[in-house]
């Protein structure tokens, strides 16, 4: 899927953001299918706000944001859900797992929310690749942040998508685990011919980015 931003600016940050230069806010941008986009964003520049805008969680902005040419504000809840099931996947900065479900159930939920893209065994394969296979049957609430982050990444990868949005997806991981996670993400995106938008505080070399933007 393709996302276009036309002079988007968040209403609560309007005054601050208008004063400083940005390659995203107040610009015309197009995230084309298959593009690997990195958005470098220092603290306080509205990184998470942007992710929420892109994923359709918030709409307190001026300008237009389109999913496949359709204004996101005008999509019906069921249409939005259709996109989230088949086209767009997400890794939140605050992870957002169901703490009362086990790690496996959290992943499974996103697998069966639509016609499953992968069989259930893929959960074990991905968990093994990210070294979290031993905590799969543990309640997500008692897993460490690092473990939860990897569970959230696997959850995002078991569903079908053509665009993956990630908000500081490696913030709780060491370099070794980050490399493994990045490799898995890269592989899954390539397999689907999908692109991603990754936001982070600093520059990195984990992916071969096609676009590099500063917020």
């Amino acid at each position: 899927m393709e996302i276009t931003l036309d002079k988007i600016i968040p209403i609560p940050l309007k005054e601050n953001l208008e004063k400083r230069p940005s390659e995203v806010w107040h610009s015309n941008i197009r995230f084309k299918t298959g593009e690997k986009v990195k958005i470098k964003a220092p603290s306080g520049t509205g990184k998470t706000t942007l992710v929420h805008f892109l994923y359709g969680l918030r709409s307190d902005y001026t300008g237009t944001l389109n999913w496949d040419g359709k204004a996101l504000n005008h999509l019906k809840p069921d249409q939005k859900a259709g996109y989230r099931q088949k086209e767009i996947s997400v890794v939140f900065q605050d992870l957002r797992l169901f703490s009362q479900l086990t790690a496996r159930e959290n992943i499974e939920l996103n697998r069966v929310l639509q016609e499953p893209y992968y069989p259930a065994t893929v959960i074990d394969e991905m968990a093994a690749a990210l070294q979290v296979d031993h905590i799969l049957d543990q309640a997500a609430g008692i897993c460490s942040y690092g473990e939860q982050q990897r569970i959230a990444i696997i959850r995002a990868l078991v569903q079908p998508f053509s665009l993956l949005i990630m908000d500081e997806p490696f913030s709780h991981l060491d370099l070794n685990n980050t490399k493994k996670a990045a490799a898995l993400i890269d592989r899954e995106c390539d397999k689907r011919g999908a692109g991603f938008v990754l936001t982070d505080l600093d520059e990195d070399q984990f992916f071969n980015y096609t676009t590099y933007l500063t917020l």
Partner: peptide, 15 residues
């Protein structure tokens, strides 16, 4: 909160 997260993850209101 749970329902909101379900919708966030892509659960359709109809579902």
């Amino acid at each position: 909160e749970e329902i909101r997260l379900l919708v966030t993850l892509g659960a359709a209101p109809g579902q």
